[in-house]
Design a protein around this nucleic acid. Structure first.
Length: 448
RNA sequence: GGAGAGGUCGCCUAGUGGACUAUGGCGCCGCACUGGAAAUGCGGUUCGGGGCAACCCGUCGAGGGUUCGAAUCCCUCCCUCUCCGCCA
């Protein structure tokens, strides 16, 4: 249950194309259709047999009530007939259970097709929708203003990558994180720790006070049903840390617990839209990324993130995606970080999204764009998996909601970009104005 | 973790092997009455699968079992409540 059997039957070509565009196997579509046809056939037969058995059993009861002896020949004959139906049914039910499992498994592996206007292809097909702010160079004039670029002549200094700045200021301790847990588990210290806390608080405050979100503080362990609901299983199962003893997973993102809040629910008309915002630490194994971005905090196993989760009526989900993306952009603008918005191509967008924007912030120390937010519309795909429905009108028929989510924002890379953008020639870091009151500091300096 | 009590349709609730085709109430929807409403009356109201349809099948926390037949009996698990233990 993901794409929906009805749509699968009605427009198999579109689903097949969607799978090809996302570099998944289109043959799954035909396999699922064939299995479903067989399933319906078997179910028809099984239903018929059950109906027979029901009437047969009922007639036994009535015969006994009518005065026949429960152990007499008349009842025995009826009983024999019912037993025989039961035997046939048992065989059929076993077959049916197998085929049902097959259908479900196939459906779980068919990806959500992208919206028609999403570019087809891989990384090269991503489209830059807009950029904001000045893309600073590494070389800066010594007497220039913060954020000013080197423009010919004069003395210059060179920006450092965030790991050098952070190490010198003793605000991030990577070696000790590696000691107590493993590589990719940063320790934030002193003003570094306070900066984490400040960003989390500020993000949550903006979203709750200005953007109308309801704050959620969810569990960071999730069960299998939740992981399946949002699509981490089976698509991203090997990216999650597993607590095998209790059959739980560490959250890879707040999306999972928060979207699953309404799993198996039918929402009444007035309840939509639902806008949640949640902070959680996020845990990712980054399997397959070994040796990539090993320095600094660009790719870590544990990071902090404030996530927006939206449940919307289908007809407004696209515009809700634009709005939500704007909320994330607003944070970057107020932090004074240069960024660009990318419309991700089919090959880059993942299994469950129908449309996805990535926000990439410019980090002038490493001279790279860093993904700090991913804003996606899932259409009804996740909702179908989770059975989240709503009634458009009181007493009306239940329909699937649309789900969306977006980071607002992910911390580690935002912190890297802040450090690299606001570092000063003397090695200190200016604190972005909006964070001043939260941090109680205007500048992070080496402790003497 | 131990002992006990429970989990039935949005909510409350009846139901201890065949008349359950799951009861009744609240809420909700429709109709009638009304200037409009309240109150009242009548009808409808779990969710899902199949079928053009009449209708059929499943669904009483989940999964197994016993039986011709399970909401009802048995087993395992999950959750809630009470008490005990442990504990930030």
């Amino acid at each position: 249950m993901s794409v929906g059997l009805q749509r699968l039957r009605e427009e198999p070509d579109a689903i097949r194309k969607g799978a090809i565009d996302k570099r998944e196997d289109p043959a799954l579509v035909d396999a699922a259709l064939a299995a479903d046809a067989r399933r319906r056939e078997l179910q028809g037969e099984a239903d018929g047999l059950r109906a027979e058995r029901n009437t047969a059993s009922k007639s036994i009861g009535e015969t006994i009530k009518g005065g026949a002896k429960p152990d007499g020949p008349e009842v025995a004959a009826l009983r024999a007939r019912s037993t025989e139906i039961g035997a046939r049914l048992a065989a059929l039910e076993a077959e049916l259970a197998t085929i049902e499992a097959q259908v479900e498994d196939l459906l779980l592996r068919i990806p959500n097709p992208a919206e028609p206007d999403v570019p087809v292809g891989g990384e090269e097909a991503n489209v830059t929708i807009r950029t904001w702010g000045e893309q600073l160079g590494r070389v800066q004039p010594v007497d220039g203003e913060v954020g000013a670029d080197a423009r010919g002549g004069g003395e210059t200094w060179e920006r450092k990558p965030h790991w050098d700045v952070a190490e010198a200021l003793d605000i991030i301790d990577l070696p000790r994180g590696a000691k107590i847990t493993g590589s990719g588990f940063p320790v934030y210290k002193g003003a570094g720790a306070a900066l984490q806390r400040a960003l989390i608080s500020w993000f949550l405050d903006v979203h709750t006070r200005e953007n109308g979100f309801t704050e959620i503080w969810p569990p960071v362990l999730i069960n299998q049903a939740s992981a399946r609901g949002t699509g981490q299983i089976p698509d991203k199962e090997d990216q999650m840390y597993v607590v095998t003893r209790d059959d739980l997973y560490l959250v890879p993102t707040a999306e999972v617990p928060v979207t699953n809040l309404h799993r198996d629910e039918i929402l009444e008309p007035a309840t939509l839209p639902i806008h949640y915002v949640a902070y959680t630490p996020c845990f990712r194994r980054e399997a397959g990324a070994a040796g990539k971005d090993t320095r600094g905090i660009l790719r870590v196993h544990q990071f902090d993130k404030v996530e927006m989760v939206l449940l919307e009526r289908p007809e407004v989900s696209q515009q809700a995606l634009e709005w939500m993306t704007g909320r994330a952009e607003d944070l970057l603008q107020r932090l004074g970080l240069a960024y660009r918005v990318l419309l991700m191509s089919t090959g880059e967008m993942g299994f469950v999204q129908s449309r996805k924007y990535d926000l990439e912030v410019w980090a002038p120390g490493v001279e790279r764009w860093l993904e700090v937010s991913s804003c996606s519309n899932f259409g009804d795909y996740q909702a179908r998996r989770m059975a989240i429905r709503y009634r458009a009108e009181k007493g009306g028929k239940a329909e699937l909601v649309h789900t969306l989510n977006g980071s607002g924002l992910a911390l580690a890379r935002t912190v890297a970009a802040i450090i690299e953008t606001y570092q000063q020639p003397d090695g200190s870091i200016l604190v972005p104005e909006v964070l001043g009151p939260y941090l109680g500091l205007e500048r992070i300096e080496a402790r003497t």
